[in-house]
C-alpha cells in the first residue's frame, strides 16, 4: 500500500487462500471491536489485532491472516507486508514460553551472554530454537528498556530483571 493515506480504499474482492478464515469467540470479537473503535481508520488497528490473533492462535497462520484481511478489508499481502516488518509478530510458530534475552550493550556488559548461555544449556537449545516439546523458544533480542536492571530477559510479556543463573533456574522452574 503506497504511502499517502488518502489513497487507501477498501478492498473489493474477497480473498481466496484456499483456507477458511479463522473465527473467534464473541468475547474476542468484542475485544477486537473495542480496538477498532479507537481509530478513525480501520487499518490503524492492524498491530493490536495481530497481537490478538497471535495470542489466540499461537502465531499468524493463514486462517489468521485471512481473518485480518477480511476484518480490515485489506489484501492478504498487506497483512504480510506489515507482519513481517515487526519483530514481535510471528509468522511461524513459537514456544509457549518465549524467552527473550536482551543482548544490547548495557545488558551485554552486565553479563547477558552468561544468561543466554545458561538458558541454552538448561533447555538444550541454541538461541533461535524451540524445544522439541514446543514449550520454550529462546531468542536474543535488542534493548528492552531494562538497562538499569541488567541482565534481564522477557518471557512472553513479563520482565525478569537483575538476573543471575540461580534466579533463572528459579524462574524457569516455576513455569508450569
Amino acid at each position: 500500500m503506497s504511502t499517502t493515506l488518502t489513497q487507501i480504499k477498501p478492498l473489493s474482492q474477497p480473498v481466496d487462500l484456499g483456507v477458511e478464515a479463522a473465527t473467534f469467540s464473541a468475547q474476542v470479537e468484542a475485544e477486537i471491536d473495542r480496538h477498532l473503535a479507537k481509530y478513525p481508520v480501520m487499518r490503524s488497528a492492524i498491530l493490536p489485532l495481530m497481537f490478538i490473533v497471535q495470542r489466540e492462535r499461537g502465531y499468524l497462520d493463514p486462517p489468521g491472516v485471512l481473518y485480518l484481511a477480511n476484518r480490515l478489508s485489506l489484501r492478504v499481502t498487506d497483512i504480510w507486508e506489515v507482519a513481517t516488518f515487526y519483530s514481535m509478530i510471528n509468522t511461524s510458530p513459537v514456544g509457549k514460553y518465549h524467552i527473550q534475552v536482551c543482548k544490547t550493550l548495557s545488558c551485554k556488559i552486565r553479563g547477558a551472554g552468561k544468561i543466554t548461555e545458561h538458558c541454552s544449556n538448561k533447555l538444550g537449545i541454541k538461541p533461535g530454537e524451540t524445544t522439541a516439546d514446543g514449550r520454550f523458544t529462546l531468542s536474543e533480542v535488542e534493548c528492552l528498556g531494562s538497562c538499569g536492571t541488567a541482565p534481564m530477559f522477557q518471557i512472553n510479556f513479563d520482565y525478569h530483571e537483575d538476573l543471575t543463573p540461580e534466579k533463572v533456574d528459579q524462574i524457569l522452574g516455576s513455569l508450569a
Binding site: 500500500m1 489484501r75 499481502t77 498487506d78 504480510w80 507486508e81 513481517t84 516488518f85 515487526y86 519483530s87
Partner: peptide
C-alpha cells in the same frame, strides 16, 4: 491491484 509489496525489514 496492490498485489506485490515489500516484506521483511
Amino acid at each position: 491491484e496492490d498485489a506485490i509489496e515489500a516484506g521483511g525489514r
